[in-house]
């Protein structure tokens, strides 16, 4: 699609904002982005390779270097080792493969970092009165994550003398499996709970609206062929065929 796109607008700069805006205009003109619906075949024809579209043309990148993404900074985690273990763990859960990016390229670790710094990370909407019994944990989600990622490193260092991020993938998988089964000793929380939180947060980071910092370039949605925040499907609800629709973010509606 970049090919097509650039052919039509040769003067476009590689600045992502501009590319995106113009692409939106292009899509709007074709009726794809406005909730108008184009059949899979038509879309495929219009946009060759429609889902490889998120990278701006690299040849021009040298002239206008990638702007710094200030959102990719830590707001919750303090120790780099902790964040590295988290990043590696999310990538094991949702690895890069032939379908497309994995958790790290989707921005999942930063997504989780921001979520943990939000009221959700300190369980601000939950009932917190003691006593905590029958396996209920007094820890906040933030506490659980910190302890969990440190435990990942601790186990890797004790058993393999490397940090979790440097472990081979199959060994990383095996460690996570032990957490999942509740086999790892943790303090005031069972390891299965940490794992469940890690897995659900990773998937949330892959598939939440990109406004939260994950699902970068809507690549999670593209892999799933999920159209995101559309306004209407009334014109296609009865269709027999699968219809591929270019995804759209909540933020996309303002532009």
């Amino acid at each position: 699609m970049d090919q097509n796109f650039n052919n039509k607008k040769p003067d476009i700069s590689a600045d992502k904002e501009v590319v995106d805006t113009s692409r939106r205009k292009f899509l709007r003109n074709t009726g794809i982005a406005t909730g108008g619906v184009v059949g899979g075949a038509v879309l495929g024809g219009l946009l060759a390779n429609p889902f490889k579209s998120h990278e701006p043309a690299t040849t021009m990148a040298t002239e206008h270097p990638e702007p710094i993404n200030y959102a990719e900074s830590l707001t919750f985690f303090r120790r780099q080792k902790d964040f590295d273990a988290l990043s590696a763990a999310t990538e094991v859960i949702y690895p890069e493969d032939a379908n497309g990016p994995g958790a790290i390229a989707l921005g999942v670790p930063y997504f989780i970092d921001k979520q943990l710094a939000s009221p959700w990370g300190s369980n601000a909407d939950d009932y917190r009165k003691p006593p905590f019994k029958n396996g209920q944990t007094p820890l906040t989600r933030g506490d659980i994550f910190l302890q969990g990622v440190r435990k990942l490193n601790e186990i890797s260092e004790n058993e393999h003398e490397v940090l979790f991020k440097d472990l081979e993938e199959d060994k990383q998988f095996a460690v996570l499996e032990r957490f999942m089964k509740g086999e790892v000793e943790m303090n005031l929380v069972i390891s299965a709970e940490f794992f469940a939180l890690l897995k659900s947060s990773t998937l949330a980071g892959c598939y939440a609206d990109p406004l939260y910092g994950g699902n970068k370039d809507m690549a999670g949605w593209k892999m799933k062929e999920y159209p995101g925040s559309q306004m209407s499907y009334i014109d296609m609800i009865e269709a027999d065929e699968f219809i591929l629709i270019e995804p759209r973010s909540v933020g996309g509606h303002k532009h």
Partner: peptide, 9 residues
């Protein structure tokens, strides 16, 4: 139209 905010949270 925000799954994280409304359906998850």
């Amino acid at each position: 139209h925000d799954e994280l905010k409304y359906n998850q949270r």
